[in-house]
Every structure is written in structure tokens, then in C-alpha cells.
Design a protein around this nucleic acid. Structure first.
Lengths: 205, 205
DNA sequence: GTCTATAGGATGATAGAC
DNA sequence: GTCTATCATCCTATAGAC
């Protein structure tokens, strides 16, 4: 397989694993298994685990901004909120990307990841303000709702949708009419996980 | 020192370290150093690192709910939003607790931490709904704003308040009139860190 | 109640073959 | 391009002394 393509494959696998287990909780070996290659090859191709995470993060930021841009320019609905809602919807179909971003966001203290994550967040803010033309209040509400949704996604709250009425209410509240998508995704996810996919999480052990 | 008191001391140190570095990124040795004792003693007292994190998490959940309860019953302002704002303010003064909660929230896939974190989130929701009497919309807005604020806290966005006009706008937008408190806290924090405190983060290395 | 010593296992990274 | 073998840490947890 050509290097470029293999690179993509590894980045894709790494995005899922990092998203599920965080930077420190991820082993290069697990990424390798998810990509179907040997552990040293992962390191060989990216230099260090940290560099791999940086590339995963940059890709994730790019994808998020792309999704927002596409949502903004898809020509239907007029309000920025509607267009941005679609953008978020696009993102949600890519669980690994979203979770990798969340993982990076809680690494603000890290001297390497922190600055990159902050810069990424700033890009989102300026996009919403300057390109989407949203007001401060709109941006606040949009980002806040998004962060709540992201947190519940990372928490896997939707896993308890049927089992717990409260979990169900929380998901309905936070995801609104998108709750169906989330639950469907969760089902696929569960199938993939039990099939031994990238994000398999018998915790650390 | 009596066991109970030492326990408290360790939990306090562990809260800071886990909050800054996450579960996987934290070593029992670093917790021990922060508490000024030996690494084996930490393990001896809590059994396993995971058990220590569980106790940190349960404490953090308890503190969050306590803060909400105190905010709710302090007798001033009438609207739940105002009282809850105060509650959040109380929480913010305890950075380690907040960050430990965030760390737990992104561990939804973990078979041990995930269920505890979800149950904790559900308790918050039911408190806001049943005790504070908030509507679904009020709860959504409150939790969403809180999650955005928490994320920015974890991101250390306030560290760039002066250096970046955008970071400043973001902090003003998310923290509102509480931005002063956050920035003050950040300053204290920085002093503590450079003094070699618990959360010192020369990354992993 | 607290420490030192250390076993035992995992992990990131390197060397070098094919 | 990709692997096998392996080194050197690092880290949780245990044993046992004081």
C-alpha cells in the first residue's frame, strides 16, 4: 500500500482510539491493531505518539471547520442557527473526530497540545462570528449546546436511553430532534465494538 | 497523622492531579508527591489507582451537588438561574473538582467510571428539575453554558486572555461577569504551578 | 501509620532484516 | 513498505521492616 494511503488509514484508526481512550490511555499498539499493522510501523511513520496525536487533532479541527463551512454554504435555511445545526449534524456522524477534539480540549495544560487546541477553538469562534455572521449571543448558545451534546456523547449517555427514563430525558433535552440519529449511531457503534473494532474498551487492564 | 485526615489529604491532592492529567495520565507516584508521602502508601490506602479515582469522582459529584444545593437555599435572588449562577460560581473556586468531573465525563466507555459518571450527571439533572424547579429549557441552557465554561476552563483559554483578543472575547462571552474570578484564579493557579504544586504539567515525558 | 525495596507487566521507541 | 526482535523505561502493586 502506498505510504500516503497507509497514513490515512492509520490516522483514521488513531482518531477512533484516541477519541475513545484519550491520549495517555491510548497505546501505539492498539492503534496498530486497529489499522491492521505492526506497532513499530505506526511509530516509524509518525515519529512519536505525540506527533500522531497532533496530526489526528489537526485533522479533526479541519474536519470540524469543513463541516461548518459546508453547513453554512449548503444554500437551504436562512438563519445561521439552522445552517449551523446541519453542520453539527454532519459532525456527529463522525464520532471519533468529535471525541478526539474533546480529548484535546481537556488537555489545556499540555505544553504541546494545549496551544494547538486553543488555536483551533479560536478558529471556530472567528468562523462563527466573521463568516457565519452570528452575534455573540448566538455563538454562545451554539457553542454551549454543542459542548453539552459533545459531553453527553463522550459520556455515552444515549447508551442508557431505554434503561433510564432520566437518561432519556437528558438526551431528548440536549439532542432535540437529532436524538434519533444519535441513538442509531450508538447502535452501530455497539455492533462495531462487540465485533472488536478500533474503540474496544475493556478499559485499561 | 490519623488515617482519616491523611485520606482527605490524598484525595485532595489526587483531585488536582487527576483533574489536570486525566486518569490514564496520572501516576500514583505523582499523587504521592503532591501529598508529600510515598507512592506505595497511596496504593496501600486506596487499593488501586482506579479505586482512588472512583473516590475522587464521588467526592467531586458530592461537592457539585452540595454547591448547587447551597446556591439554591442561600435565600437571596428569586430566579433559579440566579441561584444556580451562584452555585456555579462556588464550584469554579474549586478547579480540581471541576476538572476531575470533566475527566470522568469523557470516560463514558470505561466499564467502571462510565456508569458512575452517568449516574452523577443524572442526579444533577433531577436536582435541577425537581429541587430547583427549573424547566427543561432552563436546564438545557444552564447545563450547556456550564459545559462550555468547563471546557474553556480545561482548555485554559483564560491563559491567553491578554495575549489574544479572540481568546479574550471567548472568555468574556462564556464567563460573562464571572470572567474576573476566572482570571484571578488562573493567576493563583499559575503561581502554584510554578512553585511545583500538585498539577505541575511538564506533560508526560 | 509510613517507608524502602522490588517484582512483574506494559509500553514507546530503535535496530535491522526482508 | 512492513515486519520481528528487543531495549529501556516507567508504573502499579506487593512484601515486609520499623
Amino acid at each position: 500500500m502506498p505510504a500516503a494511503q497507509r497514513r490515512e488509514l492509520i490516522l483514521e484508526s488513531a482518531t477512533e482510539v484516541f477519541g475513545e481512550r484519550g491520549f495517555a490511555g491510548t497505546t501505539t499498539d492498539r492503534v496498530a491493531q486497529a489499522a491492521g499493522i505492526s506497532q513499530p510501523y505506526v511509530v516509524r511513520m509518525f515519529g512519536t505518539k505525540e506527533q500522531l496525536f497532533v496530526e489526528v487533532l489537526q485533522r479533526a479541527l479541519e474536519r470540524m471547520l469543513d463541516a461548518f463551512e459546508h453547513g453554512l454554504h449548503d444554500g437551504s435555511g436562512d438563519h445561521p442557527e439552522m445552517r449551523m445545526g446541519r453542520a453539527y449534524f454532519d459532525l456527529v456522524t463522525d464520532r471519533g473526530t468529535l471525541l478526539s477534539l474533546m480529548q484535546a480540549f481537556i488537555m489545556g495544560s499540555d505544553p504541546v497540545i494545549g496551544p494547538i487546541a486553543r488555536a483551533g477553538f479560536e478558529r471556530v469562534y472567528t468562523f462563527l462570528r466573521d463568516d457565519a455572521g452570528m452575534t455573540e449571543e448566538q455563538i454562545q448558545a451554539f457553542l454551549a449546546s454543542g459542548m453539552l451534546a459533545n459531553t453527553l456523547l463522550a459520556l455515552r449517555m444515549a447508551d442508557d436511553y431505554e434503561a433510564s427514563a432520566i437518561a432519556g430525558s437528558i438526551c431528548d433535552m440536549a439532542f432535540g430532534d437529532k436524538v434519533g440519529i444519535i441513538r442509531e449511531q450508538r447502535a452501530q457503534d455497539r455492533a462495531r465494538l462487540s465485533a472488536g473494532g478500533a474503540g474496544r474498551v475493556p478499559a485499561r487492564a
